[in-house]
């Protein structure tokens, strides 16, 4: 393995959730309010991801009061506490930029179902459980 890749593995988070384009996700993002810090949820659909290793970014889009909002999160940023997948989407494109031109019912994406998804979900669950056991402090989930 190239040393840069190796370094990125060491410097970045141990495990990041496997996120696909089209998924609906909840990003637990740490925000600062004065002196206090709290976790804010950003719920939306992944419309793009770019970069590899520690440089990986995901772009999440949601509609807030009729206005489209997009945010890009570095997967390995310490401010991104967690990303949970609530729904797998069935899409045929790597970048869903066409979503920007769509409103209302047109923004729907069919849910991806089937054995593969189920297996992945179970794998993810097992992984999280093992990670929880490994770290004495449980993963903070602010809902």
């Amino acid at each position: 393995m190239h040393l840069i890749e190796k370094l990125e593995r060491e410097l970045g988070k141990k495990k990041t959730p496997t996120i696909h384009v089209g998924d609906t996700v909840e990003v637990h993002y740490l925000i600062k309010e004065g002196d206090k810090e709290r976790v804010q949820l950003f719920i939306g659909m992944v419309i793009a991801h770019k970069g590899r290793g520690i440089r990986r970014m995901v772009t999440v889009r949601r509609i807030v009061q009729g206005e489209g909002v997009e945010r890009s999160f570095p997967m390995h940023s310490p401010r991104v506490k967690d990303i949970t997948i609530t729904r797998r989407g069935k899409v045929r494109r790597a970048k869903l930029y066409f979503m920007r031109d769509r409103v209302g019912k047109q923004t729907r994406v069919t849910e991806l179902l089937g054995d593969k998804v189920r297996r992945e979900r179970e794998f993810e669950k097992a992984l999280r459980a093992s990670m929880d056991e490994a770290s004495a402090t449980p993963v903070e989930v602010g809902s």
């Binding site: 410097l11 290793g53 520690i54 440089r55 570095p74 940023s77 310490p78 401010r79």
Partner: peptide, 21 residues
Amino acid sequence: KLGMTQLFAEDGTVTGVTVVA
């Protein structure tokens, strides 16, 4: 020169760095 990567600070700021052997 080995290449470039990035480092995260505690507050999430990113620094682009060149790794030199």
